[in-house]
Design a protein around this nucleic acid. Sequence first.
RNA 1: GUGACUGUAGCGCAGUUGGUAGCGCACUGGAUUGUGAUUCCGGUGGUCGUGGGUUCGAGUCCCAUCAGUCACCCCA
Length: 434
Amino acid sequence: MAKNIQSIRGMHDILPEAAPTWQFFESTVRNLLATYGYSEIRMPIVEQTDLFKRAVGEVTDIVEKEMYILESRRDTEGGEAFSMALRPEGTAGCVRAGIQAGLIFNQQQRLWYAGPMFRAERPQKGRYRQFHQIGVETFGIAGPDIDAELIAIGARLWKQLGLKNIHLELNSLGSLEARHAYRQLLVEYFSAHQDQLDEDSKRRLHTNPLRILDSKNPTMRELVAAAPNLHEHLDSESAEHFAQLQSMLDGMGISYRINPRLVRGLDYYSRTVFEWVTDELGSQGTVCAGGRYDGLVEQLGGRPTPACGFAMGVERLILLLETQAVQAPANNPDVFLVMAGDAAAKAGLSLAEQLRDALPDLRLVSNCGGGNFKTQMKRADKSGAAVALILGENELERAEITLKPLRSEGEQINLPLCELAAHLSQLIEKTKQH
RNA sequence: GUGACUGUAGCGCAGUUGGUAGCGCACUGGAUUGUGAUUCCGGUGGUCGUGGGUUCGAGUCCCAUCAGUCACCCCA
């Protein structure tokens, strides 16, 4: 036997066993976003590396060490080779696409996308090198009402999925100017106390000083507590925006916790930032996160445009669905057709097609590959079908079919073939109701 | 990227101070020539993650490597 080739580290197959949960999740999200009037957009998985450098930030971990970078081929006209990257997140590509297609200037957009993202991190539970996000982005709406709407979508989604124990954390970083000024203040403060900083915090001083405030190291606690307070340095417009958002959330009955140390890692955030967090997934508890990024469109070459969005980590939410034992609807077949004998095998094939004509929603699995009667019945059972349809020589002679219930008590019955479609139609109705 | 733990049949696991590998489930054949699941009896299946080393002898000890898990870091 040839040597096995394994999947790449941190990149996993979604196996048939898990597919119903994924489908349940995806269709729930899709339907929900449609009810709020959001349109789907699909972008390439690969973009110019510079796009992510400009959007996410040069000195973020994502850009510095987590991107998968490809060198493009020189094209046939002899164009210059350039650097491409597998997308580490979706917002940058969405903004790029929006600007390129003229979707953003002087109009409102509510968009969503779904797909794989790539980051070369050390894998652990809830953190993979290829992972999936569903992103939701809005453009051209400056007020806190859209922040509130995006948060409401999250809250409603957890409810529709049957998920519990997901909490909302909320913060405001202020306008880009206020945020930069505050950042400067922090750098000065912590630089003056260099000797008290731990290794991580010294590094963060250059990468993301706001993150030092969220340090888990107890020896840093005192220093952090005495640091300049973010909320005392908010610009007045941002403070007003934040206050209005809170009152809107209160009005909708959505509870939240203001976390002044909540800082998003990507450079483009300003004003509102939020995270939906659970304590049931260990250290990868952020299941959905986002915020406002009013400066990004301009930064990527568009006209100044307010924007706000969030992204969900699909694997983490699937994991949570599993830990909370949420049952996705099973997509078992309705019936499995057992055919005994050569004549029946041939007749059964065309019977199956007639049934599919008559009942487009019918989930029917035909036995293939022969097998004796017992083997076929075993396959019928294993398929998960509710009913076995049995077509043998006896049935053929009398133009009948036998229906045997596999999932419930009850005797098997014989039906004239001409009544089968009507009977199955009722059966489908019944299973739909459950 | 740092640290720790784990890797034995398709899956979940046992394997004593180093002595030639086992259990459950699954799969498969039969009891039942046209009835699954349930019951009973039989059977297939392992280069012990991979590669080196120590040893008369390695699943067991040592080194390397790959993968997974947990924490840090980072983030969805």
